[in-house]
Design a protein around this nucleic acid. Structure first.
Lengths: 200, 200
DNA sequence: ATTTATTCGTACCAATTGGTACATAATTCA
DNA sequence: TGAATTATGTACCAATTGGTACGAATAAAT
């Protein structure tokens, strides 16, 4: 190709950005910081991604491909509900990559601080996750699991919320044991028969 | 007293600040914004509270006295566990003051973005809440409730986390019905017998 | 060798942030 | 009437933010 050869490696830059976003609060990591960490000039970043919104969105896309894909793989393996929940607990509580939390949930946590494209991507991923949870529960129910008597839609939303809560708790520094205890307690509703009125 | 009479009313200023913090993300509300909303000069604020940290801490203190006190009142009324949980659900899901979330949980959500004094106050309140939950569960257990077989410490932490989750869900715009459904489901563990291994 | 195309990074921009120096206004005391 | 005291707000500060103008560098095509 004609013109000065490109030096900037977009993938490496994104890896650096993801790493920074992941460890800290993503919305607190400035473009300047990313540039310094990646030893890249600011105009290069803007040439590649257009805006900070474009950078964060690209980072989220790459993160989703690499990390969140593992969750979807767990859900699509066709195990029985108990095994799937156990794997989700293991993933949320023990995966060393999530020791400082999950970049996606951190972004979702401060969604309003990102640009419109990133916000839209966050919502898309969020819905995709809930859809995946719903599909799993629907399948398990069709295969005979009673889900503790919980409607599929309610259960899917609940499951997503509890996984997210556990991951945010880990990011907040809670011990792995405490997070696991809470999450297992929360998910136990899927394997227990509930009374009609649960609270009285 | 000698000297120019004071014009600035610290309580009114704090009310304005709380209102602003409450509606939005507290850490995104700048001192400048608070000054404009309260029609007060910036040096007046710094003279009164010393720093932004002092302002946010004072706002949190005032908020805790006014709003969070209601929660502690619920917990200390001496009802049976089922009634207490029902009242907590009602508070978290229906209290109109929490329609845009809870200032405390919003602050806790972005704890790292505040100054050291505010952070310390957030942690103190957090521990106080968990202590209150623990005391309630301990009393109910002593009065014969089996708490669904859940240890008091685990239950207290879990209860606090679920209330916080529900309130953040409301702040995120989820419908009152959906939040209630999830919260009631989460709290149903206190009124059900659990199996030995909950997930398999 | 010159033109054309493409990327590079220095050095800037306006806006906003938390925070303050300082002159002025308003009161009481001597 | 002054002096002492206290609160006021304008107008600034340095730092940081997201974002860009622009000339230099480097390649292929002519």
């Amino acid at each position: 190709m004609r013109g000065r050869p490109k030096k900037l490696d977009a993938e490496i830059l994104l890896d650096v950005a993801i790493d920074a976003y992941w460890k800290a609060d993503p919305a607190d990591v400035s473009v300047n910081t990313v540039c310094q960490l990646a030893a890249v000039s600011k105009p290069s970043v803007y040439r590649e991604f257009g805006s900070e919104d474009g950078l964060t969105k690209a980072a989220l896309d790459r993160y989703a491909d690499n990390v969140l894909g593992d969750v979807f793989n767990i859900l699509e393996r066709g195990d029985r509900l108990g095994e799937i929940l156990a794997k989700l607990v293991e993933f949320a509580c023990d995966d060393p990559r999530l020791a400082t939390g999950c970049m996606f949930y951190k972004m979702r946590n401060g969604k309003h601080r990102f640009g419109p494209e990133t916000q839209a991507r966050i919502e898309t991923l969020d819905h995709a996750a809930e859809d995946a949870y719903r599909a799993v529960l629907h399948r398990c129910r069709a295969e005979g699991d009673d889900l503790g008597g919980i409607p599929v839609d309610t259960g899917a939303h609940y499951l997503g919320a509890q996984i997210g809560l556990a991951i945010m708790q880990r990011a907040a520094g809670e011990s792995s044991e405490q997070v696991r205890a809470s999450l297992e307690l929360a998910l136990s509703v899927f394997s227990n028969q509930r009374r009609g009125d649960a609270l009285v």
